[in-house]
Nucleic acid binder design. Structure first.
Lengths: 136, 136
DNA sequence: TCCTTATTAGTAATAATTACTAATAAATTA
DNA sequence: TAATTTATTAGTAATTATTACTAATAAGGA
């Protein structure tokens, strides 16, 4: 039998951080923000809850090329795909998903059952490009 | 001035492994295969060369949800996008790329300069689904 | 063959994440 | 409300992928 999930203060605080700061965040970043209001919360609790909230589909987990995982709220209206700036780390949502009929047909042809996917584009945002062209 | 790249035995051996086994491999997996013919090669050499070969666009680096990076040969004809089985780890190439005119127009509208991107779908392949339905 | 220096082997250090354990606190029951 | 059960937490230790360091090696040009 599956253990019953409890609504703890810690879990609420973590979700609150995501609602206040709706962006891709590492476990460490979430930790530092949560610490402002809950100074006793441990990093292990952050990791455990990020994992749980991901499984429960409250959060999306995206592993960056630097090897660190980032998390963000799942909104029904916008897919969790991004333009991500390699310089400043800021991200912009891509307002559609590459999984279309063609893609679905391809997977059906392979009898492949999808569970989740990643589509992100890494590059340089306009602000960072301006700044670099000024200094160079 | 940029240092001149040398064609070392080690670098050749690593590329040879990728040509013999054309699939997504972790540094550890490459290490074990290379070790069969070059028992003295160190893991640091593997990492250093995988990084270099990625920068030189001989290899594509894909970070999986487990946090480990995988590498594979870049072929001009097939994009480095995949259906990846979470059970057995096998992967199949998706024979097209989601970066189309619409996507390019969106990035131009944001003055975003793309450098690389990731598009991978994780799920269960047909073989693994069959096996699990047999045992269940 | 000699020389310069990029590269390597071997090892230590780093850092993200996971595991462990006694103490705590949700949530259910009496 | 009080007692009870057990999911969860804080704090810490362990794990593991990756990077850094250094003396020794070897590629490639003179």
């Amino acid at each position: 039998m599956k253990p019953k999930t409890r609504l703890t203060k810690q879990r609420q605080a973590i979700l609150q951080v995501f609602h206040q700061q709706d962006s891709l965040m590492t476990a460490q970043e979430v930790y530092e923000l949560v610490r402002l209001t809950h100074p006793r919360m441990s990093l292990g609790t952050i990791y455990r809850n990020l994992e749980l909230l991901t499984i429960q589909s409250f959060l999306a987990k995206i592993v960056f090329p630097d090897g660190k995982a980032r998390f963000e709220l799942i909104h029904s209206e916008k897919p969790n795909h991004h333009l991500i700036c390699l310089s400043c780390g800021q991200s912009v949502h891509i307002p559609w998903c590459p999984i279309n009929e063609k893609m679905t047909a391809f997977m059906n042809g392979k009898y492949f059952t999808p569970q989740y996917h990643q589509f992100d584009i890494f590059g340089i945002c306009s602000e960072c490009k301006q700044n670099s062209s000024i200094t160079s």
